[in-house]
Design a protein around this nucleic acid. Structure first.
Lengths: 249, 249
DNA sequence: GGTTGTTTATATGTAGGACATATAAATATA
DNA sequence: TATATTTATATGTCCTACATATAAACAACC
């Protein structure tokens, strides 16, 4: 045998990524949009003009434009030309934040992000709450069916936390939460199937509600943080399990 | 004149969006990937097979697949077929989080998100910091050139906060910060050109550093929150200005 | 036996042609 | 002034063709 002789097979060198013409045209088109300082609604050249200017086939142009359409940078109006547009950032986030089609590692990383975000918005919540918010949150609380260990249903949970995020009065934060919430639902479904039982924090929804209503921004934050701690524990455990698994491989 | 008679022109009804075949095929392909429970690296049918199965032209299939390639759900290996893949979520985020190509409203909303996130990770920072982190952060602090009002350069700012986010030990939070940071840079560049001067908080980088080093998770959070308050003030002011402008229009 | 060279089928990447059709603009009509 | 007709336009969709990198199968060689 070759023993300790280093064979060609052993060379660890990452392959040169094959960059298609479409990839390059996509980049070039984004640059073009940036350079031209378009306002939303401005007409851009036609497919034929782009194809001509870049000296590529209309197919390639269309594939690149199709990508930009998906990102929302342009909108095509059938038979009338294309116009620039501000993309719907959260819509694109939604396309790629599919819990089923992401790695476990990504799921856990994003769950941690969501928890951090919820802790971080406590100041916003406190500053922007209205009497109507308090009233609506109390209504949601009344709908809750609390089990013997203080647990509530998935729907109760989603309702409560969604309302919390809504009080922050920031569409981006709110929509981001909806997307990240899906990941929780997906991951916890799997854990439940394995017989996992989530520890319930003593900082219940009711405690959070009371702090939001008549506590301080600080006490609210502590309540939220404490409420989410069991989730954080599970994420930390799962992350550790993942890392160990990697080392075994 | 027609006076107060309601004319057809005045009817406010949003047009029915034209959905292309490519749009529908894209949705169908994502469903397909979800249904089939593919592992990353699994071979999927060829373009011809998809075109045949869905009874559409290869062009349409290719445009839809091109979008999925951009999202990272599939990878095409030239002449060898396509395989499934876990998308690089943050790479896609980067494509759509271009500060130049987003509305002012989106910029402000995302800036607020970033601030909330930075406040929210203080627990992570405190729990995950290492002596090496403290040392490196101190090194960054030493590089800072502090002006008479306590202001530091953009680069000093980026270095410090990037290191902070790095201590959270979460790639997704960290990369997200890099993307959102760009928006700050872009917005502040515009404000500066208008002669705007940012109020500097008494909670300087040094204060944050000291709290991280020898304070508590709570005192650290307060320092970060206080440090970011001037930014929050500006965002609130700009948001209000935007809303007023809308009402005028 | 293991390496090297040859052949072949395969699937993506790219080009180019064709046509349907919705729309806007121009024109004509009532 | 409102409606009807015509025309040029640009996107959406389909089709054909071919270059070429790769894998697999096979042959040749030391």
């Amino acid at each position: 045998m070759s023993g300790n002789i280093k064979r060609a097979k052993d060379v660890e060198i990452s392959p040169i990524p094959y960059v298609t013409l479409t990839d390059r045209v996509e980049i070039r088109l984004i640059e073009y949009l940036q350079e031209k300082n378009f306002e939303p609604g401005d007409l851009i050249p036609t497919e034929f003009e782009f194809a001509d200017a870049l000296n590529v086939s209309r197919n390639v142009i269309r594939e690149a434009l199709s990508r930009l359409k998906m990102l929302g940078y342009i909108k095509a109006r059938k038979n009338r030309g294309m116009v620039t547009s501000y993309p719907d950032v959260m819509k694109v986030f939604g396309k790629v934040l599919d819990p089923i089609l992401m790695s476990k590692e990504t799921q856990l990383g994003l769950m941690e992000l969501r928890i951090s975000l919820e802790i971080g918005i406590s100041d916003l919540l406190f500053n922007r709450k209205t009497p109507k918010d308090i009233q609506e949150l109390e209504e949601i609380l009344k709908q809750e069916i609390v089990g013997p260990t203080g647990d509530v249903s998935k729907q109760n949970n989603i309702d409560f936390h969604s309302k919390l995020f809504q009080i922050a009065r920031n569409d981006y934060i709110q929509k981001f939460h909806v997307l990240l919430e899906q990941i929780f639902t997906c991951v916890y479904k799997l854990l439940e199937e394995k017989g996992e039982i989530l520890r319930v924090s003593s900082a219940t929804h009711k405690v959070i509600f009371e702090e939001l209503k008549s506590g301080t921004a600080d006490s609210l934050r502590k309540a939220i943080q404490s409420h989410l701690q069991p989730h954080m524990d599970i994420i930390n455990r799962e992350r550790k399990a993942l890392t160990n698994k990697e080392h075994v491989d």
